[in-house]
Design a protein around this nucleic acid. Sequence first.
DNA 1: CTACTTTAAATTGTATATAATTAAATACAA
DNA 2: TTGTATTTAATTATATACAATTTAAAGTAG
Lengths: 231, 231
Amino acid sequence: MQDNLQVKMDEFLPLRDVVFNTLRQAILTGELKPGERLMEIHLANRLGVSRTPIREAIRKLELEGLVTMIPRRGAEVAQITEKSLKDVLEVRRSLDALSVELACDRIGEEALEELRKACDAFEAATRTKDTKKIAQADVALHDIIVQATDNSRLVQLVNNLSEQMYRYRFEYIKDESSHEQLIEEHRIIFESIRRKDKETAANTAKLHIDNQEKSIMKQLRMEKNSRRHSL
Amino acid sequence: MQDNLQVKMDEFLPLRDVVFNTLRQAILTGELKPGERLMEIHLANRLGVSRTPIREAIRKLELEGLVTMIPRRGAEVAQITEKSLKDVLEVRRSLDALSVELACDRIGEEALEELRKACDAFEAATRTKDTKKIAQADVALHDIIVQATDNSRLVQLVNNLSEQMYRYRFEYIKDESSHEQLIEEHRIIFESIRRKDKETAANTAKLHIDNQEKSIMKQLRMEKNSRRHSL
DNA sequence: CTACTTTAAATTGTATATAATTAAATACAA
DNA sequence: TTGTATTTAATTATATACAATTTAAAGTAG
């Protein structure tokens, strides 16, 4: 773990939430690697706080499934197995389909217009070839859809499930050969939501996840391979 | 809140988990009522532990959505609104449908046999008119299905969502007039899983939730009414 | 040199102490 | 009485202290 964990005092959150966000981000970006132990005193010193907020943050990470607790041994970053990712994607596939279906019913004129812009913005982002920008544009687009469902529980769950594979999605987006297809799928989802064509919307959303799954699984296997050869 | 919160030392869990389970149960059964404050010293004294495990338990309840945090004022039991229940049920509807569809593909012979027995057990339970027994039989039956999906994330999410309405489901099950229909729906779900008829299974599962939703919403409105008249 | 004990260090789990903030109570003026 | 300061009490937020347990290390016998 590099020494670039830093507590941002920008906002006025309780320390436990600052720590929670910091650790969460570190796990999702891969800065803290699967299997790595989260030792309280270490983290407390590094972040310049006491153990209490660290522990409270770990409790939340535990419930989110990002860390695994081992009794009397503490927390470690959860291992991501092929199976666990498949499980996550299987649920997400269903919830993304639900999201676009609900969006068909409930999206407003303004949000629809935003969605159209987000499609354009995504296309523009792919042309910059800036992976971070592309990823952001993609998140923004999907966020408009899920927000349009007007179901806060669904929003919470979809966001949580998405985050579980941030690390991998990044690599996925790097692959330029898939950009055209992504643009096209976004376009179809937008059009079918506009026409309130639930079936096409849902099917495309599922396809969208299927493609992601294929790419992520390929990566995972490569990672596993390279681990086997290097260790 | 009555004075029957007790820490069970049966198992050998960290205190924070014991406290978490205790508070969770108290909230789900309605022993701790929506809006009620969770004061740390109070709970610590009552449960005979220090504030630390109480706080850690509250952090987990927070992430689960069972309590609401108010900065510098602590936690209170989350209010359940009609909207929030609708949101939960909307997601559950989708995930229950997914569960039975996956069960069609993945259930084994033994589990299928268990499911058949669970259907019979549920029918038998309704005849005892023991609400608690009926509820347990219902949970057991649905648990077999969701376990058959072999998707641990799905299991976790469905269980969590189900628990959110334990309080209300209890009243629902009390209503004997609905028992025949419940038995029939369980039977159809079992039969369609056996025949691997995903469409019927999914539709019936959705119907199952729809019926629950109607009943719960009726109750909620009654509750709201009686509150208005008594306050 | 290996297998087993014993000891020491590190780490978590729990409890308590201090600081900061908020809510309530009291006092006082209009 | 009502509205506003001021003080007091209660409560959370954070830090530290202590206890229990585990891991690693150092010896020691075979």
